[in-house]
Structures are given as C-alpha cells and as structure tokens.
Amino acid sequence: MNKIWAIFRKDLLIELRTKDSFNAMLFFGIVVLVIFNFAMESLRSSIHSAVPGVLWVAFAFSGTLGLNRMFAAEKENGCLQGLLMIPADRGVIYLGKTLAATVFMLIVEFIVFVFSLVFFNLTVWAEIPYLALIFFIGTLGFTAVGTLLSAIAVNTRMREVLLPLILFPVILPVLVNAVEATNIVLNTADYHALKLPLTVMTVFTIVFGTISYLLFEHVLED
C-alpha cells in the first residue's frame, strides 16, 4: 500500500514540477473540442446531441497521450529497471500508475469539460454529480486497461505509436457506455436509464482491473 502511494506521489511530484504531460493532455483535449466544433458545423442546430461523443473523444485522445508519456518517462533513464527490481509484486507498480493516470485524466477532463460548456453553450448544475460519477467510472475503466496496454506498447519497436491502435478496440465498451450515459444526463435527463451503462462500465473496470493487476507482472520488462 505504501509503495502504491510512493509511486503515485513520485509521478505527481514530477508532474507538478514539469507539467509535461498535463499541458500536452489539456491542450490536445481543447484542440479536439475546437476541431469537432468546425467538423460538426452542419449540425449546428442539433449540436448538443453531439457533445457527449465529442467530449469522450477528447478525453480518450488526451488520456492516450498521458498514458504514453507515463511509461515513456519511465523508460528514459532505465527507471523501469529500477522499478522492476523492487522487492514487491509488480502489481503494485500497476496500481500506482493506474492511480496516477486516473487522477491526471480526471483533472484534465474537468477543465476540458468547462471549456466545452463555453464552446457548446451549455449550462449544467443539477447534472454535475451524475456527470462526475460517469467521468469517474469511465476514466477508471479507461486507465484500468490503458495502463497495462501502455506498458506493453512502450516496450515494442513502435513505442508510443502502438498504444492507440491496441487500446481503442479494447476500450470500445467503455466509450460506448460513457457516451451514452453522458448523453442521458445532458440530453434526456432520464436518470433511471443510467443504471445500465454505469453497470457495464463498472463490470468492465472490475474485470479488466483484476486481469491487468494479475498479468502486469508478465508484460512488464525493461
């Protein structure tokens, strides 16, 4: 437990000092919003129905950037070597990294969401708790498998390029349900319907979190 916390704190400390991935993630998220705003010009009258999809595309893209950066940084000076030699189950590294990735992503998501309120002219108040829950579970599902796949990707010849290629097909159930849930909150307000997508995302997170935790040991190598 202490070690998970140590890894998380270390990532946080480096990030606070350099803001490398944070800036990149945030900027990319906002760029995606802007691009989609132009791409969907023809839907101007019904743009609100596109917002959930645009938001999650922005989250997924910036999240991929963050995940990539996270393990690439470990590779830089052979730091991964140091981590691999610690006397603990390597699942600990997985949990620490997943925690860090989730926190970074949630912070970026919050800011990107605020920008989207402005760009798409939305007003939310009562919806905020529901959205927070959806963002949280969706992000956890994303990082649960994203952390494992990013550890795989950085150790290939393709390095960071590979991550989106292998991550997005796997993550599809989370994206579909997260978009749908966000849509329910923003556009239909039929909160009973939220149960199903939230359940699917939770199941996804638990199943893949467990598998990743157990198998992380095997994929991690310097």
């Binding site: 202490n2 070690k3 140590a6 270390k10 000076n77 052979g78 070597q81 140091g82 006397p87």
Partner: peptide, 29 residues
Amino acid sequence: RSDIGYLSHLTSLYLDLTAMENLRFYAQL
C-alpha cells in the same frame, strides 16, 4: 528482487527529482 543491486550505464534516476527525492523514493519501494 531484494538481495540484488543492479548498476548499469542506465542510471534508473528520475531527472526531474532531486537526489534526495530519488533515493527516498527507492528506499520506500
């Protein structure tokens, strides 16, 4: 895992942390 020290030309140090922070981090682990 616990009885081997490994030193190579790769330093396994985090460049953005101070010497203290690096050692403290590894000591914790």
